[in-house]
Simulated assay, not measured.
Amino acid sequence: MVGMAPQHTDVDGVEGGVGLTALLVAAARAIETHRHDSLAQDVYAEHFVRAAPACADWPVRIQQVPDGDDNALWGRFARYFGLRTRVLDDFLLRSVHTSARQVVLLGAGLDTRAFRLDWPSDCVVFEIDRAGVLAFKHQVLTDLSATPQVKCVPVPADLCADWVTALTAAGFDPAAPSVWLAEGLLFYLPSPAETRLIDSVDRLTTAGSALAFEAKLEKDLLAYRDSAIYTATRAQIGIDLLHLFDKGPRPDSVGDLTAKGWSTRVHTPFDFTHQHGRGPLPEPNDALEGNRWVFAHKPRP
């Protein structure tokens, strides 16, 4: 039985800047979990929200939002995160049931997939993020007596620095197939850091490996500053996502992977809204218009 997380939990690393967005996603996953038509279940998500004073008054159920699903942040945007969670859950599970036994979560944040998904028993999940974020997550889960479904290895590292050495030192085997996930990560990184990350993933993977990541295609992010999602996020919880996103031109990571021999598929989130029958649909001045979900596979010879 999952209990309440105590309020003394160390929140270093998650209560400011990009770290706070991990709590936003956790709140969205909590709301999704409690929906009658939920696409993804994360029973731990609301406990992260309640353990951090900065978001103590955030909703964890849609019934706690006065305007419900009409709320741009806790309705439409939270639905987006719920859909994204489900789609990427499915991608990871397909990958490990096909060939991969190593899972690498890049910028893992408050991801609890090691705890909540049905993995093959011989899998290992590596979670890479800043030490403060991983420590906060570990403390909340420990206080809940949560047990991972598979071996879970935290890898404290800065993705703008030498995270490769930390990952291999933690036991990652580049000679074995792996599946990688960069969920809600790349658009926060400077362009050169994204290019290095993609190059590193290519070097560390063998045939039969896979990668999923989220990208934004907008040429001018600030053109969407007054969109409903960004406006509501600033006004209701004080997070200015456009301030946190890197403003430089983005590299063509899809093209880079294709040039390296990977096969790639690029989808809009709305493709999966139609597939699952729920989730966000396009609207005018839409901050989600440029979002793409990319799925890449390194073919066998």
Rank of each mutant, 00 (worst) to 15 (best):
G107T: 06
A45S: 12
A108P: 02
I62W: 10
L93I: 15
H36G: 13
V49D: 02
C55S: 15
R94W: 05
Q102L: 00
R50G: 00
Q63R: 13
L88Q: 12
A52C: 13
L88E: 03
R50L: 07
V43Y: 09
T98K: 06
T85Y: 15
E46D: 07
D57P: 00
F48Q: 01
R76M: 10
R50A: 10
D111Y: 06
F91H: 07
R113W: 05
D57I: 01
A52V: 04
D90K: 03
Y80A: 10
P59W: 09
Y80C: 02
V60N: 09
S99Q: 03
T98G: 06
S99P: 00
E32K: 14
Q64F: 00
R35H: 11
G68D: 08
D70I: 01
D111C: 01
A108L: 00
G75W: 03
R86I: 10
R116S: 09
R61T: 13
R113C: 01
Q64T: 13
D111E: 04
G75S: 04
F48Y: 07
D70E: 10
Q63T: 15
T98L: 08
L105K: 06
Q41P: 02
L39M: 11
A56E: 04
F77K: 04
V87W: 00
L88R: 10
C55Q: 12
S38R: 15
A114G: 15
Q102I: 08
E32R: 13
V65R: 14
F77E: 07
P59G: 12
R101M: 07
R61H: 14
L73S: 13
Y80P: 00
D37F: 11
D70R: 14
H97K: 08
V104W: 03
D69P: 06
R86E: 08
V87F: 03
V49H: 04
Q41I: 15
R76P: 05
H34E: 13
R101G: 07
E46N: 04
S95I: 10
A40S: 14
P53Q: 01
A54W: 01
E46S: 14
P53A: 03
G107A: 07
A100M: 07
H47V: 04
T98D: 08
A40F: 15
R116G: 07
F81M: 12
L83S: 12
D57H: 11
Y80L: 12
A100K: 05
G82N: 14
H34M: 01
R35A: 11
V43L: 14
V65Q: 14
E32G: 13
R84P: 00
G107D: 05
T112G: 08
T33L: 01
F48W: 01
D42K: 09
D42R: 12
N71M: 07
W58I: 01
L106P: 04
F91Q: 05
Y80I: 02
F81W: 15
D67G: 05
Y80G: 02
V104L: 05
A108F: 06
H47L: 07
N71C: 12
D90E: 15
L83P: 08
A45P: 07
A56Q: 06
V87I: 14
A52R: 03
E46C: 12
G75Y: 02
D37T: 13
A56S: 09
L73W: 12
R101T: 11
D89S: 07
H97W: 06
I62P: 02
G107K: 09
P59Y: 09
V87D: 00
W74R: 09
V104S: 03
G109D: 04
R61N: 10
F48R: 00
A45R: 10
R101F: 12
F48M: 05
N71T: 06
A78E: 06
